[in-house]
Amino acid sequence: MTDRADEHLDKELAAAFSDIRVSEQLKAQTMERIHASAVKSGQESETAARASGSPRGAVFPLPKHRKRFAFGIAAAVLVFALLGVGGHAFYNTETAYAQIGESSKQTVITLRINRFDRVISTQATRGELQDEVDALNLKHMDYASAMETLAASGLLGGENVDAEVNSDDTAQESDLVSITTNCLEGAGHSGTCNGAEYGMHGHGTSGAGNGSEAGEGMHDGSGAGSGSGAGQGMHHGHGSGGVHGNHSEDE
C-alpha cells in the first residue's frame, strides 16, 4: 500500500520525467537508422549472393546460431571426408602378395593383399587369363575364399602349381602360406609354396621338385637344382626340394 508520502514522491518523479519524451526529432532519427540498417543488410546479402555466384537476393545472411551450426556440419563433413580418404588409402595399401600358377604355361596369377587379408587387386600373365580372373570377382574377397575360388576355377593350370607368398608381416605371411597350401592341396594340386613342398604325399619324391622343365622359375629360375626335378621357384630355382624359408636367396 502506498501512503500519501509515497504518492507525493511518485508525482514528483513523474513530473521530473515529464520532459523526457520521444521527440519528433528522435523518432525521425530512429526511423532513419532503421531504414539505413535495412539498406545495409540488403547490400550485405546482395554482396554475399554475388560472391557465391547465386542469383540476386538468393542468399540471406544466416543468424549467428545457424552459422555456428553450419560450421559444425562443415567440420563434421570434413572429418568424415578425411576419415574416408584415409580409410580408403589404409584399406588399399598392399601388405602382401601371392603368386600362384605354372610359369611354364604362363598361368601365373598374382593376388595383392591388404592388412585385412583381403584381395585388393589381381594380375595375370596373359590378357585372356586376366579376363578370366576378373570374371571370378576376387577383388575385396578374403584371401581364403579367393584361393578356394581360384583353385576350383581350373585357371591355375595342371596338377603342378607353385606358389610364392610374401608379406612384410611374418604372422600374415605364415597364415597366407597355410591358406594357400591347404587350398591348393584341397584342389588336388601339388608343388611348392615358398620353396616348401605341398601335396607330395602320393608321389613319394620327398625332397624332389615337381618341375619337369628344369630351370623354369617364374622370374629367374636358374634350373640349378640338384635333385631329380629341377626347381620351379618363382624367384629362384629350388632344386633341392627342401623346405625353404621365405625370401630364401640361397640357390
Binding site: 520525467f17 523526457i20 519524451r21 520521444v22 528522435l26 523518432k27 532503421i34 535495412a38
Partner: peptide, 24 residues
C-alpha cells in the same frame, strides 16, 4: 522487416517508457 506503420505504432505506444528506462 516490420512495416513503418508497425514501428511507428510501437514508438507511439511504448517509446516513452523505453526512453524513461534508458534514461533511468
Amino acid at each position: 522487416m516490420r512495416s513503418d506503420a508497425d514501428i511507428e505504432d510501437a514508438i507511439a505506444s511504448y517509446g516513452d517508457a523505453v526512453l524513461h528506462v534508458c534514461v533511468a
